[in-house]
Amino acid sequence: MFELSSYNTIALLSISTLLWTFWNMWPSKKWDPRGQHCYVTGGSSGLGLAVAVELTKRGADVSIVARNKERLASALADMEKFRQGSNQVLKCYSYSLTDAEGSSAALEAASQDHGGKQPDAVFLCAGASRPGFFVEEEGDSLRKGMDDSYFVQAYSALAYTKRVVRDKARGKIVFISSLLGYMSMIGYSTYAPGKHALRGLAETLRSELYLYNCSVHIMFPGNIDSPGFVEENRVKPKITLELESTSKPVSPEVLANELIRGVQKGDFHIAPDLLANIFRSSTIGATPHHNILLDGLYATIGWIGLPFWRRDVDSAVLKHRKDHDEYLKAKGFYT
């Protein structure tokens, strides 16, 4: 009797898991950006611009925010090429988003151009990376790293949450972390901590914003073929460049499509490729699964493969020790 009951329990759990998996593969209703006001930070270039263009193609009203007015004007012209109708509202705003006041003012300006109503969705694509060795950093550069990787999105999320709660309206927050929000390696001491922090913020807000009918998503892309990537490679340590040499940067357009697709599916963590899915499933914790069967497969691959990857990374770093010592001597660090 015990043996039969055990088999019945296992069979029931297996059938339930399969039904749950197939049910979640086809959500009953996808989010449609058409006619929605979508607010995109970092919208003047790179992933932010690609997201803004893709939302424009899908019929959304799009507001983009960045600091550089010339790049904003150029980005807005690019968006106009894909306008779907004369009533579509496309706007740009020049603000610094690394402080709470600027982030709140930018959101307020975009809302006022829509009758005072806050955006239906915010895509927080602003951010920057300046790789280097931790030993060369100073207090100010550590703080700037957090400003450019964490606070530049957190402040906008805070301003948006306050409006959603005050106006008792539905909302949607989409953060952009990085593959380095799942792990990290040499060279990213001022960047990866902020991207890990974004994951922590998103995990918290996913739970808390149930109170206010506001959904939360976060994407973890690898290297992006963008002006920002070109700039960070200019100062990136030699060993970091070496470790990333086999990783081809992905176009912003491909990632923008993956991002919107993930939001439409209702994914909380949006992993745009195989490697990101392996890290996602290997570090999932209490984060909701996408597909239990696939996530189990990804986790198994990670359990087997990631220790070998880490061993190779550590070996490469150790081989670089002599070169690094010479680099520090040349920089005058020891004197």
Rank of each mutant, 00 (worst) to 15 (best):
V51S: 08
V235H: 07
D61Q: 01
I176Q: 04
E101K: 00
H290T: 13
Q153T: 11
S251W: 01
V51N: 08
M146R: 04
V152C: 10
A159H: 08
V254W: 05
P131N: 07
K81G: 04
F308Y: 07
L19A: 11
L97N: 03
A11P: 14
V122D: 12
F133N: 10
A271S: 05
S94R: 09
H196K: 06
R163M: 15
I186W: 02
Y182S: 00
H320S: 10
V254R: 09
I304W: 00
K69D: 14
H114Q: 14
I176V: 12
P272L: 05
A169R: 08
L243T: 12
A11I: 14
L306W: 01
L274P: 01
I292M: 12
F82A: 10
S94Q: 10
G228Y: 09
K162E: 06
D225W: 09
G59T: 07
E137Y: 00
I260W: 02
S63H: 08
K265S: 05
K238H: 03
N223M: 03
M183D: 12
K329N: 09
Y150N: 03
Y210V: 15
R143K: 10
I270A: 07
A256P: 08
F175P: 02
H114S: 14
F134G: 05
A77T: 11
F22V: 03
I260S: 02
C125V: 00
R58T: 02
D147P: 11
V164L: 12
W26I: 13
T98H: 06
T17Y: 00
F2C: 04
S189K: 08
Q264P: 12
I239Y: 04
N223V: 01
E231C: 10
R234A: 09
E208T: 01
Y39Q: 06
I304R: 00
Y155S: 02
A299C: 06
L76P: 04
I64F: 05
P249I: 01
T161E: 12
E136A: 14
S251H: 03
H324T: 15
G305E: 01
E232A: 00
E70K: 06
P193K: 05
E231A: 15
G181N: 09
G85I: 00
K29M: 05
S111A: 09
I10W: 11
D273Q: 09
A154L: 02
I15H: 05
R311D: 07
G35A: 11
R310V: 09
S207E: 15
Y150I: 08
T21F: 05
S178D: 02
Q36T: 13
A66K: 04
W20S: 12
N213R: 07
A75E: 05
V62R: 00
K331S: 02
Q118G: 00
I218G: 00
S247H: 15
D147I: 12
Q118D: 01
G228C: 07
G145V: 08
S5R: 15
M25A: 08
H37G: 03
V254E: 07
T98L: 11
F333W: 11
T98F: 06
P307D: 03
D295P: 10
L12E: 14
M25N: 13
G296Q: 09
A121I: 07
I284R: 15
F133D: 11
